[in-house]
């Protein structure tokens, strides 16, 4: 596929927002007495990430003014389900922010319940987002549980790294826990992503030029795709980058999404300077953009079989 930047930003931004919210809710029990600034700031930031992702998604649409129509087919379409769950998630985040902002509005139990419901909705949202890709069965790189696992784990990891950085300025008490969890999620992410790279390397494609044109012969060569100029088919489904770039990018992704952030988080133990944590977040987020680009670029659409040779 040809990666669309709107979708890359959508999935990475909401992933971080979801992860950050999960971090906030799990951090809350540690607050002991009362509600801290930290929770409120982090919740608002999570909202901002989700909102930015939503905004990015509009750039993907040809007709954004009709976007509301996308809620109608939730019975069959994962995209429709995502379009419904994302605003619900944002509303819950907002409610969670309000109950923290006005102390005493609700008691701790209710607040925790709102938080846990929010966490559940975040997980549902990860699932919906990933299923948009995982349900397209002939995009064999996507049609795997690894897609769901990676979306969930990578988003959560990025959220926890951000939570660690935030806690360094707002609430040092939680920092240790967040830091360990951020390292843990990033390492889990590394493992699951390596598994999916490994799996995708060895895919046996079910479609071939033979099944595409329905002719049984070992050697079928395209002589013309029917048009010399480009078309939607030549633009939307292939990244037009070299294999070397792709494999270099894969190595880069592994280093900047996983290795460097983990190293920096560990380094913070020796040199407790908050800049290190912010840098870890930024580096990882940039890496996640590249990771998502790769996720799209590596998906081999069978329609490309019909577009091998211009003429």
């Amino acid at each position: 596929m040809n990666p669309a930047f709107s979708v890359i930003f959508l999935t990475t931004l909401i992933g971080t927002g979801q992860g950050l919210f999960i971090a906030v809710v799990f951090g809350q029990p540690y607050s002991g007495s009362g509600i801290s600034n930290y929770g409120l700031v982090a919740t608002i930031l999570a909202f901002a990430f989700l909102a930015a992702g939503l905004l990015a998604s509009f750039f993907h649409l040809g007709r954004p003014e009709r976007a509301w129509r996308a809620v109608t087919k939730w019975r069959t379409s994962w995209l429709s389900r995502e379009v419904i769950v994302l605003p619900i998630a944002m509303i819950l985040v907002l409610i969670y922010a309000v109950v923290q902002w006005i102390p005493g509005l609700v008691d701790g139990k209710i607040m925790n319940t709102i938080g846990l419901v929010g966490v559940f909705v975040m997980l549902v949202l990860f699932f919906c987002t990933a299923m948009i890709y995982a349900c397209v069965k002939f995009l064999q790189e996507w049609a795997t549980p690894w897609t769901i696992i990676n979306y969930t784990v990578l988003g959560t990891a990025s959220g926890f790294v951000l939570a660690t950085a935030l806690s360094a300025i707002l609430d040092v008490e939680r920092l240790g826990d967040f830091r360990s969890l951020a390292i843990a999620f990033t390492v889990i992410g590394l493992i699951t992503r390596l598994f999916s790279f490994h799996r995708n390397n060895r895919i046996k494609y079910r479609s071939s030029i033979q099944t595409a044109v329905g002719i049984k012969h070992r050697k079928i060569t395209q002589r013309s795709m029917g048009h010399t100029g480009g078309s939607f088919n030549t633009r939307a489904f292939f990244h037009h980058c070299s294999d070397t770039l792709i494999s270099n990018l894969r190595l880069t992704v592994i280093i900047i999404v996983f290795v460097i952030p983990v190293a920096m988080l560990i380094l913070y133990g020796l040199f407790p300077r908050e800049e290190i944590l912010w840098a870890a977040f930024v580096v990882q987020f940039i890496g996640l953009l590249a990771e998502r680009w790769l996720f799209f670029a590596q998906a081999n659409h069978p329609q490309n079989l019909y577009y091998q040779t211009v003429s």
């Binding site: 040809g62 009709r66 948009i132 939307a236």
Partner: peptide, 11 residues
């Protein structure tokens, strides 16, 4: 809405 999802889903 021009989301192109259907084009992705057509092999």
């Amino acid at each position: 809405i021009g989301c192109e999802y259907c084009a992705w889903a057509c092999p």
